[in-house]
């Protein structure tokens, strides 16, 4: 009987801990949307914030399969979309790599201690030949040559 009691109380304590940790996490996470990014001006992401926090990797993973294997590029869960919206620019209007430890993805993943390797391969800043004028200027300032001929239209958005 005593044993069972002990076990039950242990479970209860750990449950409380888990819940507390979640709350703290949620409270902390709020700050990771970087000021000055397009995302900071919006009420929520493509899904309600709570859902994004818990599910964003599922969305991205699902999207990744349909994009790579079926060529579907139009859905709202694209990683490109994450970067476009959450990217922030410094004083010289240069885009800051989103996986950097003070930026949206990097900061939260560092806090949650979850390995983030999307950006081993994916661009961590919007790096497209047909960027908007502001970003292009930023790229030129950074010395990235974007004047390559390209007749792509409608890419990205």
């Amino acid at each position: 009987m005593a044993k069972a009691l002990l076990r039950a109380s242990l479970v209860a304590v750990s449950l409380v801990w888990v819940l507390a940790a979640q709350t703290v996490l949620a409270a902390e996470v709020k700050r990771y949307v970087v000021e000055g990014s397009r995302a900071a001006e919006l009420d929520s992401c493509v899904e309600p914030t709570e859902r994004m926090r818990r599910m964003h990797f599922e969305f991205i993973k699902h999207q990744r399969i349909s994009t790579v294997h079926q060529g579907i590029r139009g859905t709202k869960y694209s990683l490109e979309g994450c970067v476009d919206c959450h990217i922030s620019y410094d004083a010289k209007s240069q885009p800051q790599p989103i996986n950097r430890s003070d930026q949206f993805c990097g900061a939260c993943h560092a806090y949650a201690a979850v390995d983030l390797n999307c950006f081993d391969c994916h661009a961590s800043i919007p790096n497209k030949p047909d960027l908007d004028a502001e970003a292009q200027a930023a790229h030129r300032a950074a010395g990235v040559d974007l004047s390559a001929p390209s007749d792509r239209n409608g890419e990205g958005h």
Binding site: H122, A123, G156
Partner: peptide
């Protein structure tokens, strides 16, 4: 690899 293009992820 650094500075990948958005359209062509590689690593």
């Amino acid at each position: 690899l650094q500075g990948q293009l958005t359209a062509v992820p590689r690593g």
